[in-house]
Structure formats: structure tokens, C-alpha cells
Nucleic acid binder design. Structure first.
Lengths: 355, 355
DNA sequence: TTGAAAGCGGTACCAC
DNA sequence: GTGGTACCGCTTTCAA
């Protein structure tokens, strides 16, 4: 069994000091080319792969990794196209500084707080988490640069996100303008508890996903401004953000006695589920039912019919978050960026209500 | 400006030793509940978030992160559904031990070898890389547990992959059985150099993506066994593995004077590109042209027409790789697993050649 | 139950 | 250009 080779091993072997060996790797200008060549050659022979990152990390206080905390288990995140786009933008940006992404996910258990606490990263990025996620507490405790994408909205933590109130408004107004006065809302989870079904005011107010609370309030308000009675708006919460669950939730809305003429889905995935449910029930879109999505994910333009949706700049969110992290790591003070713009992309899933 | 709080700070403050404070976090049974409570309480007051992972990592020789090296920039990987599925399986498995995924990508530059060398991880997983990727050398040099998914096929490194020869055979035989004797092959990159177009024998032999070399050889062999002349097989390499590029490559095949009656695509993405190109050229599938994909990614079943494809267990590959890593980290000797099975999923994109 | 002390592997300042 | 030498912050025997 061969001993572990370290800087010291090499230094002794060559009869020079540890410092010089270290310099051979990190500061080539600090020693003669000849010495450096000798060191590198001998290192090769001994199978020394260069300074151990752990030691260097400790000494430098840097590890070259940015922690990313995602919601609900990584597999869930990977299956969400909006998450993938955010990660993509983030990775692209961080790669410029050679930073890797250390992916972890919150699962609301005590244990992952411990896992998070023991993750050696230089900064954290939180994405789309509920405000009461225990892992978030662990992240904040680490006192490292921190950026949030989407949610939770935390006091004095820079947020990269869109103006969800406005995004919701333009979607609702679009439907109002078309003449709709009876609206079904398909919500992504308000709390991570697996609840599926009609939402009452109490649950709406206690949503731990900040964005959903904000958007639902905006729906209510915009409808009220148009003089629509509150009971004309019906919210169904989906337990998961995927097409199947969206279809499930849609059935509940479409089977209502007083069926909505329009559905506003809080994600494109749910909206596509609504399209499917409608098709299966023989409800034509947009003839009998209008459907609006949220996100403008790639699938929104290839669905049938193509989806009218609220576009938010997904990859861009990740990119901006990455830029903030880089700035913070570069010692700059980071300022909270403006909320990103949203816009309505009108395609073919919306129209006037049936007469 | 407040000083950095460490175990020692806390120990001095409380008039106890560092060891005891450390134990308060890591070995609660090694000290009285009372002392522990005191420690934790005071830590809270001082804003101490627990032992610094860097120090612990150095001391323990473990960081709780598994490095994952992906091809071509992370954004590329995230846009590849098969990569996402593999990552998903991997994450699911590793999560059980609280291990995070540290994502990095090879980009064939000298610099990322340095980045890799300085990544503090407990083990590495390589996925779908060319055999000459410099970052791979850096990974191997680290002398940590290492598992490869798909490729490169490295001497004495456990591989999680499928029998690509057999997968190719069943696809080609399916087409032969249907009566096809003129075949177009749509290949994913043979080398990461951005080449797009018809491939000659030389390039085929020098493919640095092992899997592609293996599969193309299998195509040749299977066709030859059926008595088909070599020039009846025409290979077009696509510069990237996505739908658009697949369509582009397909045009080249479909505009041939002696147009193939069947296309075997080396990924479902390329195959879907072929479907699109055919549709745009007014070539009916499977009437005028049969198309076979590879992977059985989710999109294969929702394309139009649904794709006949060679199924490989994507998420499962990641899961197995994760299990091997866990075993290795647990001190077990890991043995190379058997190649995973492939099977042909016949859907509606293949049929007899036109008469 | 608690503490002392020896590393873990490196880095970077400073003197020679 | 090279070497000496304090740390970086923690874990873990081992002895008290």
C-alpha cells in the first residue's frame, strides 16, 4: 500500500521546501522554470495530482463551488423545465469563473438542514422554495453570499424574480377583455403538503410559497376591480406541478355546475394539463374554454393549441443570479436587481367566452 | 466588524475546550446534555452556524459532494433529456447519503482541467464524454472512486451503460426485416469538433466518442451480414444532439439522389428532427420513410408519429452509478456491473419501404 | 465527562 | 529564487 503523497512528501523527496512545491502549482512566477519542471516531473512519477483541494479550500476560504438549493428533491427539479432553464443560465454564468454547481434539495426534513450545514460552498442560490423550508434556515446561518431566484422573498436577501402581481394582472385583464367573468385558477402548490383540490380563503392566506400568495391576491384584486363577484373565481390547487396533475385539477374545475369559461394556470405545465383535460372532455379550446399559462416554457409554443401565456425570462433569471454571485464573490456589494419584466404572449388558447 | 466565530471562539467564551464544542455537534453522546445545551445556546447567540465544513472536510477527508463531469457545458447537458434523466437517477440515489452533486462540464480546454483538479469531491461520475477530454485526465489523477456512465470506456473503471452493439443490431435488423436495403444513419457527434455532414470511413474510425464508434461498426456489420453493400449505408454526422440539427442532417440524407428508405438516428432528438424534416419535405412517415430513434426518451412516445426506438434505461443508469459510488464511499470494492439491457420499442414511425 | 495535543494538506507572508 | 513558519478550522485519539 502506497502512502498518500502530499506537498511535504514531494518537498522532502526533492530536498526543497513545501512552499516551493506549492508555488510550482499556484504561482509559477515565484520560482525558476527549472525547479518547477523538476517538481512537476517528480510529481508525475509519484502520482501526485496537485495540491489537495480540501487543504487549499480551508486555507483560502474558497472551494470553487456554489450551492444551489432546489425544491422537492432533485429529481423533481430536473423534471421541471423552468428549473432546468434557470440552472442552465446559472451554470453558464458561473462557469466563467470556473465555479461548479453543488446541487442540493430541500425536503422539509430536519436532516437536510444538517446536510446543508456541512456543505462547503462559497455562496448559495435558493430557487423556488417555500419560506418555511428548514434548509433555508441552515443556508442563511452559513453567512455566505446568498441570492434567491423566484422565492422565498426574504428580508435583505437579493431576489431575482419577476413582478408576479403585474404578470397576473395582464393575464387576468386579457381574459376580462375577452369577456370572461367566470374564472378557474389552477394553482401550483401553496404549501408543500401534497394537498389537491379547491382552496379556501384561509389556505390562500397561509400559502408558504410566496409567489403563489402574491399571484392569487392579484387575481382577486384584478377581478374585483372589474366588478366581478369573488365567488366567480374558483381556485384549485394542484399537488404537483406537472401535466398529469394539471389535468386532474382541471377536471375538478370543468365538472363544476357553473363551469368557468376560462382557466388561468400558474404554470405552463398545468396549463397543458388543462388543455388535455379539456380535449378529453370534449370541451373545445378556445371555443368553449380559454386557457392561459404562466412561464412561456418551450412547451407552451408547441402545445395544441399553442398556449397564451405570461412570459418570464427563465434562463435570464439564472444568469442574473449567477452574475450577482460572481460579483459578491469578487468582493462587490451586491444590490438587489429590479424585478424582471413579464409580458403576455397571446397564442391560440384564448378567445371570447361561449355565448 | 465582528470577528469570525469558530469552535475555539466558542470554547474560550464558555471556558471549555474545543473538543467539547466539536462534540456538541458531532457526538452528542460524548458530553452531558447540560453542557451541550449551553454550547448550542451560546452558539446561537454568537451567530455560530456550526463547524465550518472546510475544516471538517479536511480533517475527515470527506466533503459530502460527488463530482459529476458532463459533456459540452452544463447548459448543453441540461437541454438533453437523457442527461437530465441520468442526473435524476443519480441524485435520487446519492441523496440517501446526503451527498450533493457538484456539476462541472468538460469543454476541452486546458483551464477546466485545473478547475477539476481543484474540486473537492469524494468521488467522480463521468457521463457521456469523449475519450480524449482533458478534464477526464484531471479526474483520474485525483485517484478517487470513479464511475462512468455511457462513455468513455476506460480501462479498469466501472462502466454503467448498455450493450450498444446489440441495441444497434436490433434496430438495424428491424429495418432489414421490414425490407429496407438503403439506410441513412443520423449520428450524434463522433468528435466534439462541430463537424456536420457526411462521414467517411476515416472519421468513423477515429471517433473519440466510443459509443458512436461502437454503434457505427455495429451498423456496418449487421448490414454486411444481410448482404447489403457498404455504399448502401450513408452516415451523416450532426454537430449537436438536438432536434434542429437532426432536421438539418436529415435534409442531407433526404436530398440524396438515391434517397434512403429508412433513417436510423442515434438519439431520439435527432430522430424527431428527421420526422420534422420529412414532414417539411412532404415525405410521409412511415409510408415513404421509416425512422428509428435511440434512447426512448419521453419525447419518443409523444412525437408524430410516435417513434420506434431503441430503449435504454436512462434514469436507471444514473441510479446504478449512484449506488456504485455509495458502495465505494462505504469502503466496498466495487465491481463493474453488467451492461444494461436494451430493447426495441416499435411504434409507428417504421414500416415497409415504398415499392 | 472533559481537555490536551497532534495532525489533516496547504498557502502566503516575510526573511534570507 | 527559496525556505521558515504561522496559521486555516476541525476531529479524534488518549489521558486525566
Amino acid at each position: 500500500m502506497t502512502e498518500r503523497v502530499t506537498l511535504l512528501t514531494l518537498a522532502k523527496d526533492l530536498g526543497i521546501s513545501r512552499a516551493t512545491v506549492s508555488n510550482a502549482y499556484n504561482r509559477p512566477d515565484q520560482l525558476s522554470a527549472a525547479t518547477r519542471a523538476r517538481v512537476l516531473a517528480r510529481a508525475e512519477e509519484l502520482g501526485f495530482a496537485g495540491p489537495d483541494p480540501r487543504g487549499a479550500g480551508l486555507r483560502r476560504g474558497r472551494t470553487g463551488a456554489v450551492g444551489v438549493l432546489l425544491d422537492q428533491g432533485l429529481s423533481y427539479a430536473f423534471s421541471d423545465p423552468t428549473a432546468v432553464l434557470d440552472l442552465d443560465g446559472l451554470a453558464t454564468e458561473l462557469q466563467q469563473d470556473g465555479l461548479g454547481l453543488l446541487l442540493h434539495s430541500g425536503t422539509r426534513s430536519r436532516t437536510d438542514a444538517a446536510v446543508i450545514a456541512s456543505a462547503a460552498v462559497d455562496a448559495w442560490v435558493l430557487r423556488a422554495l417555500p419560506q418555511d423550508e428548514p434548509a433555508v434556515v441552515a443556508v442563511r446561518a452559513q453567512q455566505r453570499p446568498l441570492v434567491v431566484i423566484d422565492q422565498p422573498r426574504l428580508e435583505s436577501v437579493p431576489l431575482v424574480g419577476v413582478d408576479d402581481t403585474r404578470g397576473t394582472q395582464i393575464a387576468v385583464r386579457h381574459l376580462l377583455d375577452l369577456g370572461h367573468r367566470r374564472l378557474g385558477v389552477l394553482a401550483v402548490p401553496l404549501r408543500p403538503d401534497g394537498f389537491q383540490g379547491m382552496v379556501d380563503a384561509k389556505r390562500e392566506g397561509f400559502a408558504t410559497y410566496d409567489v403563489m400568495r402574491i399571484r392569487l391576491a392579484a387575481v382577486r384584486e384584478t377581478m374585483a376591480e372589474a366588478g366581478v363577484a369573488p365567488e366567480r373565481v374558483c381556485v384549485v390547487e394542484c399537488a404537483a406541478n406537472d401535466v398529469d396533475t394539471g389535468a386532474l385539477g382541471s377536471y375538478e374545475l370543468l365538472e363544476l355546475d357553473d363551469r368557468p369559461t376560462a382557466i388561468l394556470a400558474m404554470s405552463d405545465q398545468l396549463a397543458i394539463g388543462a388543455l388535455r383535460a379539456a380535449a378529453e372532455m370534449g370541451v373545445s379550446v378556445p371555443g368553449d374554454l380559454s386557457v392561459v399559462g404562466f412561464d412561456d416554457a418551450p412547451a407552451a409554443s408547441t402545445s395544441f393549441p399553442p398556449l397564451t401565456t405570461v412570459a418570464q425570462p427563465l434562463g435570464e433569471r439564472g444568469r442574473i443570479a449567477g452574475a450577482l454571485v460572481r460579483a459578491a464573490l469578487g468582493g462587490e456589494d451586491i444590490v438587489e436587481p429590479d424585478l424582471l419584466p413579464v409580458s403576455l404572449v397571446v397564442r391560440e388558447s384564448t378567445g371570447a367566452p361561449p355565448s
